[in-house]
Design a protein around this nucleic acid. Structure first.
Lengths: 233, 233
DNA sequence: AAATTTATTATGTAGCTACATAATTGTCAA
DNA sequence: TTGACAATTATGTAGCTACATAATAAATTT
């Protein structure tokens, strides 16, 4: 990684970050202009620019034209999450993946669903319930609505052999995705399917996707007790 | 945004993304080399490089030297989360922020804590319990361990007036942060403090931070019933 | 003194070149 | 056939220039 003469933009970034960490620049302080840092570190302004841009993306500093760069005085913890296809998630843990379709039928969406999609009107969609298994044990219970106007092909898919999760993600890329995380008590139905006790605290991942403005799917994925979501390294 | 003659790297990115979305390039397919795309779109290779890098960061494509660029065949949902200081979070919702210190005393860390910090030995740390309020109602109950070797100053801070959350984030920047999300049933103690019922499903945010290799703090933040974490737009 | 316009300044972006690096492919000898 | 080495190739990075853009500061007018 260019350990010799020239500094890479990542090295520049880390040096500047280090100065912030060590207290050289405190929250709210203004940093020197890119050009001055470049001169000091004997590198090009474009290198400093890339480094600063990365620190800005990471929520470490704030940059404004003419105003310069300053250390964020209201720091946020910014994290990146990866949510893979459930099959992959299970297999990456070295477990055997299993899948069961519970039900699949068209129905009128409740208001909570149209609300999530930011639709004014309720409409008919395909509702698919399915269970993902890890080494034969319940892992994730998903309750999904698929917009059959946007994705009519879903009606021809045999969802007993391919999960909607997998099929959609492989065949219907989305341009927008909203995620929502919360906790919920297990209903009698969920508890039975997830092999949990009624009232157990379940971690829920809710995902809504669109292609342009058109809804694709909304999933409520209830995870089995003990499930944890970690930030990627 | 340079709508005229030249294409910005974001426009290039969006065009390539669009082709993937429309099915021109399917998962697993190899895209043309940067130079060819540059020629086709009448822009510089560096512009395509920036666009591709962004798509790669976003988990849309995979790039390998010599191997070229291909559409990820195992797509992941990648999301960015912002977790602000609790005060800011409350105030951004237009609510009045409140804070109560419950307890603060040094104690021997249990194994679960040292495990999170990746420490071999148990050690004495400061344990701080506090309640964050939104419009006077319980919002987040935090149970925190602070490494007094790394952050000895914390012992001189009056934690009845300043929350450890705020003081640490303003004064002790971290170089590494691990996050963990899960659901948990309310214990009798938590239920009372959070104004919830015993056994209610609570959403928990667990955060561990380090400066270089040295532990700073580990917080278990139990949120009040109804709390939801959303991805930033 | 307030409002408007103009100049200044720091960051943002695009284009070009040159070279570094990692993978793969091809060649040749043992 | 296999192993080692060399050539090729596509991406990655750094440096430079030129100009765009936004925000502030200064100057000017009302």
């Amino acid at each position: 990684m260019m350990t010799g003469a020239r500094l890479s933009w990542k090295e520049v970034r880390d040096r500047i970050h280090q100065r912030i960490l060590s207290g050289d620049y405190a929250p709210g302080d203004r940093l020197p202009r890119d050009a001055d840092i470049a001169e000091e570190l004997h590198c090009a302004r474009s290198t400093v620019q890339r480094a600063m841009q990365d620190l800005s993306d990471g929520g470490i500093v704030e940059r404004r034209r003419k105003g310069g760069t300053r250390v964020r005085s209201d720091p946020v913890t910014r994290a990146t999450l990866d949510i893979p296809v459930t099959r992959t998630e299970v297999e990456q843990k070295g477990a055997r993946y299993g899948y069961q379709l519970i039900s699949s039928k068209t129905a009128m969406t409740p208001r909570s669903v149209t609300g999530n999609f930011e639709l004014a009107q309720r409409k008919e969609m395909l509702r698919v319930k399915a269970l993902h298994l890890s080494d034969g044990r319940p892992y994730i219970l998903e309750d999904r609505w698929v917009d059959t106007t946007t994705v009519p092909e879903i009606l021809d898919i045999d969802l007993t052999t391919v999960s909607a999760n997998e099929w959609l993600v492989q065949n219907k890329p989305y341009s927008r995705c909203d995620l929502r995380f919360y906790a919920e008590s297990a209903s009698p139905e969920s508890a039975e399917l997830l092999n949990a006790k009624i009232g157990d605290a379940l971690f829920v991942i809710e995902r809504t996707t669109w292609i342009d403005e058109a809804p694709i799917t909304l999933v409520r994925a209830q995870t089995a007790p003990g499930y944890q979501l970690l930030t990627r390294i």
